[in-house]
Design a binder for these strands. Structure first.
Lengths: 180, 180
DNA sequence: AAGAGCATGTAACCTGTTACATGATTAT
DNA sequence: ATAATCATGTAACAGGTTACATGCTCTT
């Protein structure tokens, strides 16, 4: 499943522009599927060419025309077929874990920094989850709720693991030891 | 951090061939960093060209020469510099979660199949973790142990979440309800 | 006899990323 | 004033995947 298919899926929720979809990639999808304008716009053009979307150009002053895409019946069918794949992957590419594998070649302060940065990133996701929930999930399909919960569970697990096991990689400083 | 850098890191553990490194990508690194021969071999060639590795060709009968690579001092330095990046990413690209977002457009049996397939994949990772541990970790650097533990923690969290929340997406069948 | 493991590599391909290009409006 | 938001798009580039090409040995 590529960016094209995800765009198709997002458009089952109603017409939207590339700009709108980007925002969805940055909120609901942020924790498991990244996409930039450089892949979204070409995806939408291609889907239109192939008749899976229709495009309505809404003229605007001072801005480029807003292009609102709408999924066609053919698009829905193609999406349904894509969703028939019962072996979708879940890939992780972690420079973080790769780095930690070589922690013994690093300086203590750099290891600390890497760990802290990761915890910071996780915290950002958790904040994002919270803000999404505040916007109200009542009208969300169950699938979206399931996915959000999945993200929360995994984020919590990662956070806990790092906090409880960072001592494996970094010696607690004298000050911290004194405080504790 | 790309495949090149990871290969460099793996070679700090001692000389190895591309074939050997592939096996490491399939065991220790399998849960967070994939790489195939198509990226490993070119990476090693390139690193040799750049003087970061030396290569000893060991003639073999009936097989291509075994090329054993060894990291150079320059290679170690380049690796150390790469490990100075204190903001390494941790990216997830999940067709699984993307699919689940659109579960309301799917048939029950397909949702079941997707969920079961994912649980199967997770189980495979857990088996892999077990077999790695049985090989003995005593001589492993702390970083590698940390990373293995991270993988185990995340796998457990994903497994639990799916088992405890699949009811959000699929109605329990009459038979199961009767049994329970 | 079949299949797995050993062992290397290339070329075409696919996909996505980054940088560039443009420019008005609105909020701080 | 400055930054953010709205709004689209392309071209060059980077990186990895897949399929292809070769062929022996050991295990089942």
């Amino acid at each position: 499943m590529d960016v094209k298919t995800v765009c198709l899926g997002m458009l089952t929720d109603g017409p939207a522009s590339g700009y709108d979809l980007k925002k969805e990639f940055e909120s609901t999808f942020a924790h498991f599927f990244a996409a930039g304008y450089g892949s979204i716009y070409p995806a939408l053009s291609r889907l239109s060419e192939d008749g899976l979307l229709t495009c309505e150009e809404i003229p605007q002053e001072g801005k480029p025309d807003r292009k609102v895409y709408c999924i066609t019946d053919e698009g829905r069918q193609v999406l349904r077929d894509a969703l028939k794949n019962t072996k979708p992957c879940h890939k992780i590419r972690s420079e973080f874990l790769a780095t930690m594998c070589f922690a013994h070649l690093m300086e203590q302060e750099d290891i600390q920094a890497v760990l802290d940065h990761r915890l910071g990133d996780i915290a950002k996701y958790q904040e994002l989850f919270r803000s999404i929930e505040q916007d109200g999930l009542c009208d969300w399909p169950q699938g979206a709720k399931f996915v959000l919960g999945f993200g929360k569970a995994v984020a919590r697990a990662m956070e806990n693991y790092i906090q409880e096991n960072r001592h494996m990689l970094v010696e607690e400083s004298a000050t911290e030891a004194a405080v504790g």
